[in-house]
């Protein structure tokens, strides 16, 4: 009974995003559509970092590195393996084009997520022994190392950048991924098992003494966060069609951190902050030269405004 309902629900979700995509591509101008997609990608990134930074309290400044892993992995997949799969799907299995690209991009997203999660595991296991500002700096360092490693990989274009990535990202995939991220992380943290993340943030020693394997949970949060960062990166790659490691410097990580810091601890807050910070520079077009200056001022004033709260406790 229940499983039938769940299947129906999934179908409904798929249909909803399918028609939403159809509707928006028909009636929304491409510029707004693009902003919408960027906003959605930022929501994914912010929520996934929220799990690590705000819920588990492990301050990571290397999210852009995982994004890069996902972006490059998926682009490599759709660019090199994609055409083969496409001919297999259309010629051997006689799928229509639509289904073929559906499966290819679906695979690409999963691969992006899994590889990023793997990177998250490799980075997280040693680094999460550190705390506070040292952890922040170490994750920043790992993010940069990932970037330089990709920069030195010739198969993905190296310093020339990765060009001609097929454009697959649309509102359907975006909606699905945002919904998926939200559901997984939201359901996780609103459960007794997921409250373990919060417990670690509040007091790691006490959490461990209450039976929570803190290392497992910290690395777990990191891996889940990296997974969705990878998915976000994949969506970005297939929206822009071109990748260069310069878009994944630690400034990118800091932008995501600012979203989480601005939004407070809740997922809704992070998502709203992500949307606001995507829209703000667009709304203030005439302001575009000052964009980064405003950004840094927002960050400073945000921290100073919170200082009062910290003083009282």
């Amino acid at each position: 009974m229940k499983s039938i309902r769940q299947v129906l629900f999934c179908v409904a979700i798929l249909c909803f995003f399918f028609f939403l995509n159809h509707f928006l591509t028909l009636y929304l101008n491409p510029y707004y559509l693009q902003i919408l997609i960027y906003a959605g990608i930022n929501v994914i990134l912010a929520i996934s970092l929220n799990l690590v930074n705000a819920q588990t309290g492990q301050f990571s400044m290397g999210h852009a590195g995982f994004m890069a892993v996902g972006a490059y992995a998926s682009a490599f997949f759709t660019d090199r393996v994609g055409p083969l799969l496409h001919s297999f799907f259309t010629h051997v299995l006689a799928f229509p084009d639509f289904f073929s690209s559906f499966f290819i991009f679906g695979f690409a997203l999963v691969i992006a997520g899994c590889l990023s999660a793997g990177a998250g595991f490799i980075v997280g296991l040693p680094v999460l022994r550190l705390r506070g500002d040292y952890l922040a700096i170490a994750t920043l360092g790992f993010g940069e190392i990932i970037r330089v490693m990709i920069l030195n990989m010739d198969v993905v274009g190296g310093a020339r950048g990765f060009t001609d990535i097929p454009i697959y990202t649309n509102v359907f995939w975006l909606g699905l991924c945002v919904y998926g991220t939200w559901m997984v992380i939201g359901n996780l943290i609103h459960s007794t098992k997921g409250r373990a993340f919060l417990a670690i943030r509040e007091d790691e020693v006490a959490a461990e003494c209450m039976g929570i394997h803190t290392t497992k949970y910290k690395v777990g949060a990191f891996v889940i966060g990296a997974f969705f960062a990878g998915v976000g990166g994949a969506l970005l790659a297939h929206e822009v069609g071109y990748l260069h490691t310069n878009s994944f410097t630690f400034l990118r990580s800091i932008e995501i951190v600012v979203m989480v810091v601005l939004g407070g601890t809740s997922l809704v807050g992070s998502a709203l902050a992500a949307i606001v910070l995507t829209l703000l520079p667009e709304v203030l077009r005439f302001f575009s030269e000052y964009r980064m200056v405003v950004y840094s001022l927002v960050l400073i004033f945000l921290m100073l405004a919170r200082a009062k709260k910290w003083k009282s406790t």
């Binding site: 500002d133 800091i254 200056v293 950004y295 840094s296 400073i300 100073l304 919170r306």
Partner: peptide
Amino acid sequence: LAALMTAVGVSLL
């Protein structure tokens, strides 16, 4: 960490 974020902000500024 709040101070660190502020320092990052100052650096960006």
